[in-house]
Amino acid sequence: MNENSLAIRKFSALANPTRFLALADRVLPWLTVLTVVCFAIGLWLSFTTEGDYQQGETVRIMYVHVPSAWLSMMCYTVMAISALGTLVWRHPLADVSAKAAAPIGACFTFLALVTGSLWGKPMWGTWWVWDARLTSVFVLFLMYLGVIALNRAMEDPGRSARVSAVLVLVGFVNIPVIKFSVDWWNTLHQPASVFRLDGPTIDPEFLWPLISMAVAFTLLFFSLHIAAMRNEIWRRRVDSLRRQAARNAGRETLAP
């Protein structure tokens, strides 16, 4: 057996929901503990490091705002990859993954918008401006709500999976727009200062709390995503068992 077919077999082994559930049961406790530890470190750094000479205390809002904004885009990317999984490879867990990720992504996008607004008021002097970055993130938030609504609008998970996969892929065009909006247009929002080709331009005093909070938020996302995928598999099992029970009951009453 060559390496390629071994990789394919491993990938399809994960497609078995029962195997995924077993894996989730093993991984989740560790991931939860790791998330809590990272949040403890991140929050401690967020409040013990110094304030900025210009932003003062409000720099601490960045330790929540930047990781949420980063997750809002990463979550949508996870959904887009899952959508490809649904449409191209027909991986059975792909649409479970996309469906489970949408509410989580919506929450983080909401958090990015609200904390950004709470930082904007004292620093920019306004809660909101319709600049390219803020508007494109707001569109992302609406996309999440649209995907959630579409997932819930249809009874048949197979059909809603394909339709929402198309919506997710079309909406993915927004992700590079969000990322590069600060370079392409003249925005009130500042350009990237952490993920830059020439390295981060912010002081280590702010970089460390930011990185540790970003790691904590990312771990939180994956814990929640795996748990939500497990819930979705359970939900589908309950549905199919109920249908099966109804069929059996029908057969019993019909049989002489």
């Binding site: 205390e57 809002i61 929540v64 929450c107 958090l111 609200v114 904390t115 004292p122 939180l220």
Partner: peptide, 21 residues
């Protein structure tokens, strides 16, 4: 509001959202 109030409000919203989720 003072700057501290904006920081507090941000963390309160974050804690509420994450806890709810």
């Amino acid at each position: 509001m003072s700057h501290a109030a904006y920081v507090l409000a941000s963390y309160a919203v974050a804690v509420a959202t994450v806890t709810g989720l």
